[in-house]
Design a protein around this nucleic acid. Sequence first.
DNA 1: TCGAATTTGTGCGTATGTATT
DNA 2: AAATACATACGCACAAATTCG
Lengths: 264, 264
Amino acid sequence: MTTLVGPGWSARAGDETTPGAAIRGSGVALWRQIAGDIERAIADGTLAPGARLPTEAELAQRYAVNRHTVRRAIEELARDGQVRVEQGRGSFVAEDVLDYEVSARTRFSEWIRRHDREPSGRMLSLATVPAPRPIAEALGIETGGAMVRLERLGLADGRPVSLAQHHFALGRFPGIAAALSAHGTISAALASLGVADYFRRVTRVSARLPRPEEAALLETSRSRPLLVAENINVDTQGRVVEFGLSRYPTPRVQIVFEPGAEAA
Amino acid sequence: MTTLVGPGWSARAGDETTPGAAIRGSGVALWRQIAGDIERAIADGTLAPGARLPTEAELAQRYAVNRHTVRRAIEELARDGQVRVEQGRGSFVAEDVLDYEVSARTRFSEWIRRHDREPSGRMLSLATVPAPRPIAEALGIETGGAMVRLERLGLADGRPVSLAQHHFALGRFPGIAAALSAHGTISAALASLGVADYFRRVTRVSARLPRPEEAALLETSRSRPLLVAENINVDTQGRVVEFGLSRYPTPRVQIVFEPGAEAA
DNA sequence: TCGAATTTGTGCGTATGTATT
DNA sequence: AAATACATACGCACAAATTCG
């Protein structure tokens, strides 16, 4: 491994007085030296996951090379999946993706904790509304029937990772609104109403661009799609408990299905 | 059901001489008459799935009502999922959604036929290429190792529904390229190499906006996300056979997870 | 809704060093 | 030694995407 004069990965700017430069004639291509240098900065945490790399022009200046040379280095790192390049925005250190395991009987906090992050959440709204046809069909009630809708933002280490709507038929759970207000979690509220356990029966996944409020709440770009998952939760007798609609920001969250992992 | 004077759903334009109009004072709200009329046009195929409705202004003129009245009718249909409204583009007759069942041990043609459509496909490319790191890891070979990549466009009733890349380790299947050329399907090619059966082990779903070629091949808008599914296929001994990367156009295709449906 | 500024993407031409023939 | 091919590197111009006012 050829070393390279430190080009100043330091946080403070205005380091132009002592710019690093790539070593010419060292027998190692400049772009390889640069790729290695950035790779090292990522490995030792100088460049944190999700952080933005300096622009190509800036890197070219720092290493005293042409922009093409920098591009080639970044191209290599992108091919390895270490950085992610976005036209018009910049290049970013690849982030850990949160895998959302569909097959597991997941509660939000369990999911987040399994990935060694700290779960938190914010209830956005709780209201009784008439059921639109698709949701009514899923819940097995009449279109327009009374339904409680809870909207909630889920965070991992303080970063939003899910925006979910939970729908409960009021006819089946008359006390659901009060229970949801009283208890901190949905499973606790349902437990107080006699639903000891429940699990996912179907999950249906699509994707679309976020609406402005969704993008703001999930702290994502308007041009980056959301994964939209609809699911039906049933109790141990197979009766429908809840219809859920969750939105996850890509590429921070992926949905994973692993048949045979149900036992876990 | 109230009938309405035909407002001219005919294909040819310039029908302004005999515009239909909603019946006032009939005891049925104008917007309900209009909604019913459009619904009928959809039901009898006059407005085909995916077709664009006339603009709200145009409909208002045809029915001789205010645009708000038309909007109310469309709103009703949108709530029912019969039409899809897109700001800045127009309103469209909802298309049938193809459910892609992840849990099933699916072959492309089986999937399409199960939805009563006619499957077809087009091989786009077949080449031996070095494996980028993520794929190499999935296949259990070294980064840069030789790998055969088959790219294929899948169609249902002539409309593109999937764009898939299939990757096979050349070390494990030396004759794979020839087999894929010789046989029409992947499963037939693998069978000729001794892989009697194989099935999905993990499926990982994300979403992103399409690249221009992807949008063109899948006949979708550049602003409508693709569902991107990566999956690892293994044989009956659990050995990795293939790494697949499939792209599906939303909202034409949804991905469905239904644990417990594996038996099917 | 629009344009300006920023940033990455692409194409072309040129030059140079290294390895192969 | 000369010819050829290839990888590397630079310079310039413009296209395309994003962001922001």
